[in-house]
């Protein structure tokens, strides 16, 4: 068997490392988790439990800034997503147009698909 030759299929099959491919796609509905870590975070309280739509996937992947905050400068990277949420979803008494929105980058580990 000639190991220097491979089938066209095998030659083009690329397996991505864990976390390399985005988990969420633009247009998908997501909810920001409500977990409340003891330590550092970059997901403001006002967003917790709120639902929105993934507007775009931020490239390139980045470190989890909750880990970076404790001096970890390397490690597994994941995507941030720019999420669009209606102001009326966040603030029950929002005074403005119902079309007004909040846009924010949220790290993958903080989102769930709905």
């Amino acid at each position: 068997m000639d190991l220097s030759r491979t089938s066209a299929d095998a030659a083009t099959k690329v397996v991505l490392a864990q976390g390399e491919a985005p988990v969420f796609a633009p247009g998908e509905r997501v909810r920001v988790l409500t977990r409340s870590p003891v330590g550092h975070y970059r997901v403001p309280i006002y967003l917790r439990g709120k639902s929105g739509v993934v507007e775009s996937v931020i490239e390139p992947v980045g470190l989890d800034n909750e880990e970076e905050a404790y001096g970890r400068n390397a490690g597994m990277k994941r995507h941030y997503y720019r999420v669009a949420l209606p102001m009326t979803e966040i603030w029950a008494d929002y005074d403005g147009s119902p079309r007004d929105g909040l846009h924010i980058e949220v790290f993958e580990t903080w989102l769930e698909r709905i």
Partner: peptide, 14 residues
């Protein structure tokens, strides 16, 4: 230099 990265600074301020 990653002696203190930006996120460590933010955490330290908090």
């Amino acid at each position: 230099h990653k002696i203190i990265n930006t996120e460590e600074k933010r955490r330290g301020v908090e």
